[in-house]
């Protein structure tokens, strides 16, 4: 059997695959976090809760309406985006002229409420969500077995990230966003409805988290705590990448997922802390983050 540093190749590839899957979720979540932060200057602690909501909405659709994975992939994120609209209009829009720390405190409270409610209703054990029939089974690549759904998640996350990047860098809407990030008052003076732009941005960020949640549902279980664990890791990813660059957030997400996977192979004890350790090292060497501009 082929081995690398004494580890069998299939085992190594298996962990790398898990790392890449995790990285896909880190990338999608840190992307949404960066988009929201860029425009609203709010660190969205509720991002994990919105990811969890996406998974639960998909599960609700299947369980109570018999609506399967593919429609849920569209409907559940829309539902989460709608929740985002309500959150922005009712709560966040009231605190924009305050210190940014209040945004973190507010969304932290929101995350506690949302996750607390789901925990109250559904307990801490996860609900299974089965892999869509199209992606049952696996590819045998010779050196490793690649489950079809996992391959799909990776491809889907790349498409999602690229599409979001194109939306922001290449469209008129994106130009409004980039301009409003710099000088919202002037953009509004030109006649752009900036308050609505803010609502839309938060909805898009929340929708991205929801979409990640739907994709995650068949991989992990649908659990009220699934977002709580990931959100702080994503914070570290964002600190490492620097929030100045959308691409930076995405690339950092994938790479750190892989690093985490590798750590599981070579030094499993550190796999849950390695991203935080990297954050410390990056802060010591390059405080603004790898892609930061400040």
């Amino acid at each position: 059997m082929v081995t690398v540093f004494g580890i069998s190749l299939p085992a190594l590839m298996g962990q790398l695959l898990i790392g890449l899957i995790n990285g896909s979720f880190y990338a999608m979540l840190s992307l949404g976090l960066a988009v929201i932060f860029g425009m609203l200057r709010v660190i969205n602690f509720a991002h994990g809760a919105q990811y969890m909501l996406g998974a639960f909405f998909a599960w609700f659709l299947l369980r109570y309406a018999g609506i399967g994975f593919w429609p849920a992939l569209v409907l559940a994120p829309l539902g989460v985006a709608l929740v985002g609209v309500v959150i922005e209009k009712v709560l966040l829009s009231r605190i924009y002229n305050l210190d940014h720390l209040y945004g973190l405190l507010l969304t932290f409270g929101l995350a506690l409420v949302i996750e607390g409610l789901f925990r109250h209703w559904y307990g801490t054990s996860g609900q299974p969500y089965s892999i869509p029939s199209t992606f049952q089974g696996a590819f045998n690549l010779g050196f490793m077995i690649l489950p079809k759904y996992r391959a799909f998640v990776i491809v889907a996350s790349v498409i999602v990230c690229l599409t979001t990047w194109l939306l922001i860098e290449k469209t008129k809407f994106g130009a409004y966003l980039r301009a409003a990030t710099e000088n919202p008052t002037l953009v509004q003076a030109f006649g752009v409805n900036v308050p609505r732009l803010l609502t839309l941005t938060y909805a898009i960020g929340a929708g991205l988290a929801g979409l990640a949640g739907v994709l995650a549902a068949p991989v992990y279980q649908v659990s009220p705590l699934m977002g709580q664990n990931i959100v702080i890791i994503v914070f570290a990813v964002v600190v490492i990448g620097g929030m100045g660059s959308i691409m930076g957030a995405v690339v950092t997400g994938y790479v750190l997922g892989l690093v985490e996977g590798l750590t599981k192979v070579f030094y499993p004890e550190a796999s849950s802390t390695v991203i935080f350790v990297i954050m410390v090292l990056v802060l010591l060497v390059r405080p603004a983050g790898l892609f930061g501009k400040e």
Partner: peptide
């Protein structure tokens, strides 16, 4: 020493991440 390298919102996120790292350490 690590956290004061950044200000404001980043300071909050870094302290949160450091504490989470310590949490995982205590877990293991």
């Amino acid at each position: 020493y690590v956290a004061i390298k950044r200000q404001g919102i980043y300071f909050a996120m870094i302290t949160m991440a450091l504490a989470q790292m310590f949490y995982f350490f205590c877990l293991q």
